[in-house]
């Protein structure tokens, strides 16, 4: 699946959380810093393969960690999709 981050997000960083304001929906979200790291890695101008995203975060992991991390990142992606901070890209 290809995903793309929505544009013009405003963020405010605190210790373990990031507050994100999305002017497109008018919603404000309080995200875990990890989620924000995933979000930060995505560009807004071009679609990105979700598998590529997972690989980036799993590159230095042991195999048994990988399955867990894979699920974890997938959860984050689903979460971000639901919040409309990223969109599934289709032609």
């Amino acid at each position: 699946m290809k995903i793309i981050k929505v544009g013009n997000l405003l963020t405010k960083h605190y210790d373990e959380h990031v507050i994100v304001f999305d002017p497109n929906t008018g919603q404000t979200h309080c995200l875990d810093s990890n989620v924000n790291e995933v979000l930060n890695h995505l560009p807004t101008n071009k679609p990105y393969q979700s598998s590529q995203l997972k690989q980036f975060f799993m590159q230095d992991c042991a195999n048994d960690e990988k399955t867990m991390l894979n699920d974890y990142i997938q959860d984050m992606i689903d979460n971000l999709l639901q919040l409309k901070l990223i969109r599934a890209y289709s032609l």
Binding site: K12, D15, E16, H17, T28, C30
Partner: peptide
């Protein structure tokens, strides 16, 4: 209170936060 929680707490108690947008 940690700042992120306070942030959300302030929003919850605002009459016009969402209307003001950015």
């Amino acid at each position: 209170t940690d700042k992120a929680t306070a942030f959300m707490g302030v929003i919850e108690n605002s009459f016009n936060y969402s209307i003001l947008a950015e």
